[in-house]
């Protein structure tokens, strides 16, 4: 069970959280101008890296906040977390495959 550092509540067990998918996906500003494929890119397509992953978690059974986490999807090492309005935590070195 992962130990997830909520930026507001500190480290808590994974069971308190809900995974909310890849982070950094912004809703397009101009939906009508996008092609069907571009819309699909936004809705369905993901980086899914083996290595450093920018992701969102929701502290559902806690403060109720979504926040950013950077985690290695192989080692599960968490490089840090940050509130939504702050920059994502720095990663020591880029390990994306």
């Amino acid at each position: 069970m992962l130990l997830i550092p909520c930026p507001w509540c500190g480290e808590r067990a994974e069971a308190e959280f809900t995974y909310a998918g890849e982070g950094g996906i912004a809703r397009p500003k101009n939906p009508p101008e996008l092609s069907d494929q571009e819309w699909a890119d936004y809705v369905y397509y993901r980086h899914n890296p083996k290595g450093t992953h920018h992701e969102l978690w929701l502290h559902l059974h806690g403060c109720g906040k979504y926040f950013r986490v950077v985690r290695d999807t192989v080692s599960n090492q968490i490089y840090g977390s940050a509130p939504m309005l702050e920059a994502p935590p720095a990663v020591p070195e880029r390990k994306e495959v």
Partner: peptide
Amino acid sequence: LAWLELWLQTEWT
């Protein structure tokens, strides 16, 4: 509720 919060907290901050 979680979905509405997602929009508020991550998109339309």
